[in-house]
């Protein structure tokens, strides 16, 4: 597969589903053996058989989080979508992250699309739990389509979580990073927004959110990696070498 062919260009994350029980734990070990996992992506809202979702703070989930700890898989990325079960509960509840994060302080929890539409609950948790991060995928396109909404959302995230705990994501199967990356990087707060939130979207913040924070979670030495990528097969084939030349700090 592509990631095994170009290991310098891809980081493969695993996955787990607590409803798979013992088999699931074994499968996670197999994935770890094969890919030397540093992270997993999990879908708490995914249907399976009779079950229409699970929670990160379920006892079954805790077994898997313990296994992650044992195997040295440090990063857990919960993608939270609308869950249908139980029918009378909040379909978008993100509060399961809270207990999971405080019970596993050695793991990092990157909540994808920052918990929208429960951004408020997410920020409240993220500001209190040092190991909770926000992934910007799905929220990022607002930078083009609804920039002032994006300003509000980014303002809140920088206020409650700070620039060290946000990670850019493109959800590239749906949005092309080609336009999305520059859109987010070129985004500017208005003077009012800056005054309201008391935060900056400056070069330093951008470097962290667009890459340095992820690099830290995944033990990537950026300079070293840039050196490797500048001259690998892909760079040579597509003429990408120049973009890896080190850029002097402003």
């Amino acid at each position: 597969m592509l990631a095994e062919e170009y290991p310098e260009r891809f980081i493969v994350n695993g996955t787990f589903d607590p409803r798979d029980g013992e088999e699931g734990l074994e499968y996670l070990e197999e994935l770890d053996d094969r890919f030397d996992l540093q992270g997993v992506k999990v879908y708490t809202a995914e249907w399976r058989g009779e079950s229409k979702g699970w929670r990160l703070d379920d006892p079954e989930s805790f077994e898997f989080l313990e296994k992650c700890e044992d195997l040295g898989i440090e990063n857990v990325h919960p993608h939270k979508g609308p869950t249908i079960r139980p029918l009378n509960m909040d379909a978008f509840d993100v509060t399961d992250v809270d207990d999971a994060a405080s019970s596993f302080p050695e793991l990092n929890f990157v909540v994808e699309h920052v918990g929208l539409p429960r951004l408020d609950d997410f920020c409240w948790i993220g500001t209190q739990e040092p190991n909770v991060y926000g992934g910007l995928a799905v929220a990022a396109p607002f930078a083009r389509t609804r920039p002032r909404k994006f300003g509000e959302i980014l303002g809140e995230l920088l206020y409650w979580l700070g620039e060290d705990k946000l990670l850019f994501g493109s959800d590239y199967a749906i949005w092309e990073p080609d336009w999305l990356v520059p859109e987010v990087m070129n985004f500017e707060f208005t003077a009012d927004e800056r005054a309201e939130y008391g935060v900056e979207w400056d070069v330093e913040a951008k470097r962290k959110v667009m890459g340095e924070n992820a690099a830290e979670l995944y033990d990537i030495d950026i300079d070293e990696r840039m050196g490797t990528l500048a001259d690998d097969e892909i760079s040579r084939e597509f003429g990408l070498g120049s973009q890896y030349e080190a850029v002097a700090d402003d």
Binding site: L116, L119, D120, A139, F142, E152, E156, W160
Partner: peptide, 10 residues
């Protein structure tokens, strides 16, 4: 304000 941002964002 956060509650408001969440609602209007959604």
């Amino acid at each position: 304000r956060l509650a408001r941002t969440n609602i209007s964002g959604q």
